[in-house]
């Protein structure tokens, strides 16, 4: 592979990378910001991890999340219960924000990963791959399951003095999902996907040229 150039997104330095396809982390020469990581077998790993995450996502939203016992009375909560109560109290802004950041965005992200890397695993590129990656780039900072995990720990400690908290099946699935998603995120290297897309685009353009001749 020829050496290629890479512009640092933090300080705009042109970095020359002579061995772009050697596994490892690549850093900017000026400000040592991370340029990209190259990991072999990224497709297969991300595909597998996100299939597992999708399964856990369904479990998380289906089974009871936490139960809270105080002096004889019990309240059960599913994962989405807080959103339902917020909407019932006409807290539209809070309800929508929690709905989007803990359910919609993570689900869209998992589905995009599965479609994108699953179809690459089966040696073809989905039609709207560029659009999917654009959506993914916009969504990534707004999927906040890891923050939600911390919030659950804080609220459990807050409530533990008032009564008994019984974790449900869904809580364990949720914790596992947070770790699996973080793991798959650490492997995500968009450059490999883009190179694939770029090669296919060039091939298509050449085909069109031949057709016009």
């Amino acid at each position: 592979m020829n050496p290629h150039y890479h512009v640092c997104h933090e300080c705009d330095t042109l970095n020359k990378i002579s061995t772009p396809n050697r596994p490892g982390r690549y850093k900017c020469a000026n400000c040592s910001a991370k340029l990209y990581t190259y990991k072999p077998a990224m497709n297969e790993r991300i595909y597998a991890l996100n299939l597992a995450a999708l399964f856990l996502f369904i479990l998380t939203n289906y089974f009871p999340f936490l139960s809270f016992h105080v002096a004889g009375s019990v309240s059960h909560a599913n994962f989405a219960t807080s959103i339902i109560y917020l909407y019932r109290d006409h807290e539209w802004l809070l309800g929508t924000a929690i709905l989007l950041t803990t359910i919609v965005f993570p689900l869209v992200r998992i589905l995009i990963y599965i479609i994108l890397f699953g179809s690459q695993f089966h040696n073809y590129l989905p039609r709207y791959a560029t659009h999917m990656i654009k959506i993914l780039n916009k969504l990534l900072p707004w999927g906040m399951l890891d923050v939600f995990f911390l919030a659950i720990l804080v609220s459990i400690v807050k409530l533990v003095k008032m009564g008994t908290i019984i974790p449900g099946t869904s809580l364990w699935a949720f914790i596992l999902m947070v770790f699996i998603l973080a793991w798959s995120q650490s492997m995500y290297d968009p450059h490999q996907v883009w190179e694939h897309i770029g090669r296919r685009r060039k091939a298509l353009q050449q085909k069109e040229k031949l057709a016009t001749i």
Partner: peptide
């Protein structure tokens, strides 16, 4: 989120 979880529980 803490406010949300507390409202639910």
């Amino acid at each position: 989120y803490v406010v949300g979880v507390m409202t639910a529980l």
